[in-house]
Write a protein that binds this DNA or RNA. Sequence first.
DNA 1: TCTGGGGTCCTAGGACCC
DNA 2: TCTGGGGTCCTAGGACCC
Length: 359
Amino acid sequence: MPKTKRRIVFHVDMDHFFTAVEEKVHPEYKGKPVIVGADPKQGKGRGVVSTCNYEARKYGVKSGMPISRAWKLCPHAVYLRPNYELYTQISKRIMTILKRYAESFEQFGIDEAFLDVSSKVANYGEARRLAEKIKKEILENEGLTCSIGVGPNKLVAKIASDTKKPDGLTVVDEENVQQFLSPLPVRKLLWVGRKTEQKLREIGVRTIGDLALCDPSLLVEKFGTIGIQYHLMARGIDKAPVGGSSGIIKSISRDHTFEEDTSDVEEIFRILDSLSQEIYEDLVKQSLYFKTITIKVRYEDFETHTHGKTLSFLTNRLEDIKKNARRLMLPYLEREKRIRLIGVKVSNIVSGAKQKTLT
DNA sequence: TCTGGGGTCCTAGGACCC
DNA sequence: TCTGGGGTCCTAGGACCC
């Protein structure tokens, strides 16, 4: 049996990417708190903060926070709507730089990436120098800083990149994985969110070190098969290959939150049709076909439902999307409650090339 | 604190077939 | 009339990610 190959993996994370791009395009914002997200509307706006720069963070503003709360904390900030086209364009250029240094590569969201550099460097010292070189190149080419984590797998690299920001570089070699992870809260692990953190707290587990000492069978009892994953992660074990999960599109969705909750059927159908239209354009652009369509409704009290149907045929016709979306939506329009959000999703997707072989 | 928008993956129950 | 087990697909909901 061949011994498992030693790996060296980078996680590259752009620093407050959206606001960093905005500051680069608008140098006059430099030094001011900048917040990219929903329109704050004098504190009455709906939606959340996408990204904020470090000046804004000094006021307690964070990404994911309601924009109305950000307004209370920092009314004098520069508030901007996201310019995804610009961010995507710059992201593509950065990813092109990163790919050149990687044996295998995996983009993660718009501004993060994993690089497997195992065959490119001989040891962690060389890995550090390579990471420094990459940071320098991105800064010189794009005027943007990033934070890089280096470790024996994606999990450790990702957590490492998060420990020193902005403009950080954190290297964790195999020998130091356990002592690096142990004191950190479980929340730092990938896939451990608010709910899982709470459930772990109930069994007295707060840090990754606590989790590593846990009886795996107890974790399975509490979380099912994913419990094994938690236990492996807590011991710094992650065999997932870089680039393993990237590529094929599984679903396309659009949703819309109304500025004011509504029961106006005409308005709801108008928006529903425009969401269908956008999905249709996306499908055609990428020559994709779908079989399943699902609508989403969120009422004013945040009660949320999904309702879907799998068709007996593959399609990308606008009429099939519009008609089915409307039909699936109908039963939800008869309630007393007003509607806050509607959405449309298509899934069970195959590409046009593959579709031809199926028909 | 009054909660966006675009995704992925998992689970559980039920239908249906052999 | 009663009683299986396995497999696959569908549907709704939920957790989590950036």
